[in-house]
Amino acid sequence: MGLLGLNVDLMERYGLRFLDGVQVTLELVLLSVFLGALLSLPLAVARVEGGKFLSRASFTYSYFFRGTPLLAQTFLVYYGAGQFRPQLTDIGLWWFFRDAFNCAVFTFTLNTAAYQAEILRGGIESLPIGQMEAARAIGLTRYQAYRKVILPQAIAIGLRPLGNELVLMIKSSAIASVITVYDLMGVTRLAFSRSYDMEVYLWAALLYLIMVELVRRIWDVLERRLNRHLTLSR
């Protein structure tokens, strides 16, 4: 035992592996959130503008992924893909689904896209209807109006809940460890199975806390800069 009661020998044995686990966690979360953001845009617009069929399809998608546990979704993708190995091999996709990290990214992307789509939908519907009318009046197409006028404002309105979604994804990423992804929690479980020292879970908790706090601070700066016009107008 070293200073502050820390097990120095344990830190020397697993310290670098914990840092590797943090890197895998950040890669998993950032990639999933980014891809989910891209997917959430058409989903949100479909809820608002898609008509009866597309609106219901988008709602059903969000309802499923927001209403079922992420753990169950992860199992469905990872273990379910194995049931369709011959078909996936035939179409050249087995290389993707046989990798646990890819399955985690795929599942997390689908999950966070549902939440981000609902946040964007709320932002879009909170805007005055005159925003679209004004954009069309100056000659913008509906696509241009959404790209240049509607979506930037909707994203600014939803910036805080989008930040909360990023934080939730960091904490939820621990689920990936159950399908053998060596993220932070995966490394922690491995270290505990070999040392039987509960201290490793304390390290994991502290590292998750540090990641969340860094995101919170970065998001606060981002929100102040992007929404500074709202502060000045008050």
Score class of each variant (00 low, 15 high):
233 S>G: 07
183 D>C: 01
118 E>F: 00
195 S>Q: 09
204 A>E: 01
224 R>A: 10
60 T>S: 13
178 V>A: 10
179 I>D: 04
22 V>L: 10
77 V>S: 00
142 R>E: 13
12 E>F: 13
207 L>M: 15
28 L>A: 05
168 L>D: 09
52 K>C: 08
215 V>E: 06
131 Q>E: 14
220 D>N: 11
36 G>V: 02
35 L>C: 05
174 A>L: 01
82 G>T: 07
75 F>A: 07
130 G>P: 07
67 G>V: 11
42 P>G: 01
27 E>M: 14
116 Q>C: 05
128 P>S: 15
45 V>R: 03
215 V>G: 06
190 L>T: 15
114 A>K: 04
155 I>Y: 07
5 G>W: 02
193 S>I: 11
148 K>L: 12
223 E>H: 10
2 G>Y: 12
92 G>E: 07
115 Y>P: 02
78 Y>S: 04
109 T>S: 11
165 E>W: 02
54 L>W: 15
39 L>E: 07
205 A>L: 06
84 F>V: 03
57 A>Y: 06
219 W>K: 06
176 A>K: 01
94 W>E: 00
212 V>T: 12
218 I>P: 03
49 E>L: 10
109 T>R: 08
136 R>G: 11
175 I>L: 14
147 R>M: 12
54 L>M: 13
141 T>S: 15
140 L>C: 12
76 L>A: 11
152 P>T: 02
32 S>A: 15
158 G>H: 03
74 T>S: 10
217 R>P: 02
